[in-house]
């Protein structure tokens, strides 16, 4: 057989959420950039299909014709994922996403996050579960920022959310994957996509998340806060792809003893 005729590798099937398949397993936030131009360039470099946005009150009196986020991250090109960042109870989160649905012309896919306190931004799980239940019954497709607790993740799945998104470490901390064992438990049990949301600091963190078997990774600070955000966006794209490929390929088992890579037979000495 001619070496050049080797069969092509099967492409990764992509990430399916709520019945729609996305090429990229990297989801990115649109916050913390220095300006809209940097937002646009980094978003493009990330290769992400799904971009999170925040919903906020319009500044009354500000120039209504100033360029807006949706001009540089257009819904015609990207799937916009409105979040509930800054909400500390279920009622506020549900209200925010009802506004988002109207803003985005009936768009159903949303990111729910109900926070516990400002110091940790850890999810308030009782309120998160309450909001998830209301939103699912109201017809939303809900992706949920949650604790890395397999029991809470299962409760969310039972409610009917479309993805669970446990934190790898605190939002914006860049501390990486602090409890891979909990993530593995969630990945193993879940029949819906599991994405790491929050805590990724650099490319290797994203690769580790994917190697664990996560379906995707969502990040914002790791890209926007890097010295060169556009370059880091590309690094994250490559890391998520590399980690996914490694997961699909199946890593070698770790072993205590060495194992030579070169054959022992036929040595010249």
């Amino acid at each position: 057989m001619n070496m050049n005729d080797a069969p092509a590798l099967t492409a990764d099937a992509g990430l399916t959420i709520a019945g729609k398949t996305y090429n990229s397993r990297l989801l990115v936030g649109s916050g913390k950039y220095k300006d809209l131009d940097e937002t646009r360039l980094a978003t493009e470099a990330s290769g992400a299909d799904i971009i999170t946005v925040a919903i906020r009150r319009v500044n009354i009196g500000q120039d209504p014709n100033a360029p807006s986020l949706l001009d540089v991250v257009p819904p015609s090109r990207y799937t916009i994922l409105p979040n509930t960042a800054g909400c500390y109870n279920a009622e506020d989160a549900v209200y925010t996403l009802q506004l988002a649905r109207e803003l985005l012309n009936g768009h159903k896919l949303v990111k729910l996050e109900v926070l516990g306190d400002e110091k940790t931004l850890f999810p308030n799980m009782p309120e998160t579960l309450k909001a998830a239940d209301t939103l699912v019954k109201d017809g939303f497709d809900v992706m949920v920022y949650c604790s890395d607790d397999p029991i809470q993740a299962r409760m969310l799945e039972d409610i009917g959310v479309v993805a669970v998104m446990p934190l790898a470490s605190l939002i914006g901390s860049g501390m990486g994957i602090l409890n891979p064992w909990n993530l593995s438990l969630i990945i193993e049990q879940s029949r819906i996509p599991v994405l790491v949301d929050a805590g990724v600091g650099t490319a290797s963190d994203a690769a580790i998340a994917m190697e664990l078997g996560c379906d995707g990774v969502l990040m914002n600070t790791a890209i926007a806060g890097a010295r060169d955000p556009v370059r880091m966006a590309r690094a994250m794209k490559l890391a998520v792809e590399a980690g996914r490929e490694a997961f699909l390929a199946g890593r070698v088992p770790k072993r205590f003893a060495a194992s030579p890579s070169s054959p022992m037979a036929g040595r010249v000495v």
């Binding site: 649109s30 916050g31 946005v53 925040a54 906020r56 319009v58 986020l69 990040m219």
Partner: peptide, 8 residues
């Protein structure tokens, strides 16, 4: 009255 802005 709300709009979308950058967020993660």
């Amino acid at each position: 009255v709300v709009r979308a802005i950058g967020g993660g």
